[in-house]
Design a protein around this nucleic acid. Sequence first.
DNA 1: GCAAAGATCCAG
DNA 2: TGGATCTTTGCT
Length: 174
Amino acid sequence: MVLVHETPASRLSGRIVETESYGGEEDPGSHAFRGRTRRNAVMFGPPGHAYVYRSYGIHACLNAVTDDTDTAGAVLIRALEPLDGIAVMEGNRGGRGLSELCNGPGKLCAALSIGLELNGTDLTASPLWIERGEPAGNVMRTGRIGLSHGADLQLRFAVADSSHISRKRPQVTQ
DNA sequence: GCAAAGATCCAG
DNA sequence: TGGATCTTTGCT
């Protein structure tokens, strides 16, 4: 799968190499765990929309809403392998190495100029969308990262041989 | 109204 | 290893 953000200046895209999935009230690690709130309202909306939230007051993180209306569920995009607009991404990220451009949820949003103004946008009718790319290679399944609850659930998926994922040797491999 | 924690990142 | 930095949330 390939994430594309078409900006007025350039086309920015990258192959999705790492994701985590989040559920609803049954998932203690999800923003939707305690029900619908102002921030996570998009997760309860129709699928195919972008859920962008602010993390630690500084970073933006991008999710794709997956479950049907009134059922919370989303996939967090955690890392990309840069494809189009690499020079622009390096500029957005302050001139980092290629493997440092998008190897984290906050980083890839900075690189692709994805901000909170894109929260709730329809991924099928906006400058931001996801399209089918080459099939992923060796996909490993591990525990989710950075959570204080539900981190033991094996809901993180990453391409094992990619050099663009956030962590090389995770806790558990399949 | 106030306090605390958070799906992170970077520098030292 | 800890600081930056600020919004959302829940409790008083």
